[in-house]
Design a protein around this nucleic acid. Structure first.
Lengths: 188, 188
DNA sequence: TCGTTGAGTCAACGCCTGTTGAGCGAATGG
DNA sequence: CCATTCGCTCAACAGGCGTTGACTCAACGA
């Protein structure tokens, strides 16, 4: 029962964190529209008005809550970027960051989330295209990206049984040839 | 200017059609939450109350409007189902039925649309799995399905530049090896 | 010690939503 | 021809939403 007064700055930091955590969870579960400021406040054990005071409006709260982790490293050569994609897959399966989930959950119905998704995916396409030879490098990169997109949507957002039941290593193993087939123009 | 009185049954049929068409377009564009009954009524040039009178409530309007085209034929053998998938792709690119688009637009944020999507995808997985040999047939079928899902999401819902600019035949050509790689256990 | 700051609460506002019930007027059918 | 059906409109309701401003009270700093 140590009721130390707790300095103001620290208190503010913690409250903001609680609100952001609650918002992330709810946005990831319900999407932007179905998530109410009141529900976020309730989950964070805080008054709804305080959420406004901290973030101004719902859009801004969403923006701050879903800050997606930037696309990491670049400049991989040839086919090992398949391993890289499948690597992020392994990471994703375990604990796809809640913020990214929240963003993806709303990307089809919230304009700003859609723009954010396009930007993130576009960056990944750019990065992949650099490592792929041929005229249609961008198309191949885009298809690799949409494959991973579909996998993430099916797995984490729609929670299809077949994907939920399969261990991530097996998914990676079975999917690898499909990605490898896109790393370069094999025939033509 | 033939102002024929127009029989009641016919009149009813047309009005219902106008409302459903408007609803499909708006649901497909904005998703369930952002589409208001009032907006549907305005687009259909009708009173909002009439929409209620015809469909009871918004959920029911959505249900009737997005009636997804049932998964067609079955029992394809071996690898020509890839061609079938890529064939539906060709169809989809041209004029993916507005109802399916509406359903997919809301599948991440509307519970019933999510259930509907799971059902449709599940049926496709079942159907594909029948034509694939091996223990992991279901996983392979699921991955083929998510690949097409990701493509549709990226192309029609997020409208990624790389996919919008590419002619459908080229997408099919480049993607075919990735799907073929999933039609059977080649190595192990 | 005491005025000031600022975190947090409370009650309310205005708006928009889905939804309803009363009513109008034209097509219907006996 | 007339009573009835029924497609359709109008005005309004209740409820939930994001958002606001006044207020409380404990931490702060001089």
């Amino acid at each position: 029962m140590s009721e130390r007064p707790l300095p103001r700055a620290e208190r503010r930091r913690r409250t903001e964190g609680k609100i952001l955590d609650a918002a992330r969870v709810l946005f990831a579960e319900m999407g932007f529209e179905r998530t109410t400021i009141r529900a976020v406040a309730r989950a964070a054990e805080v008054d709804p008005a305080l959420v406004m005071q901290y973030f101004g409006n719902k859009e801004e709260l969403f923006r701050k809550a879903v800050r997606v982790t930037p696309v990491p490293d670049a400049g991989l050569d040839a086919d090992q970027l398949v391993d890289h994609l499948l690597g992020t897959l392994t990471v994703k399966m375990g604990e796809l960051p809640q913020g990214s989930l929240a963003m993806m959950r709303s990307m089809l119905t919230h304009p700003e989330a859609a723009a954010s998704a396009r930007e993130v995916l576009g960056r990944q396409i750019d990065r992949l295209a650099e490592s792929i030879p041929g005229d249609d490098a961008r198309l191949r990169a885009a298809l690799m990206t949409t494959i991973m997109l579909g996998l993430t949507v099916g797995h984490h957002l729609l929670e299809l049984d077949e994907l939920r039941d399969a261990p991530q290593e097996e998914i990676a193993r079975v999917l690898r040839p499909s990605l490898r087939a896109l790393t370069g123009p094999e025939v033509s």
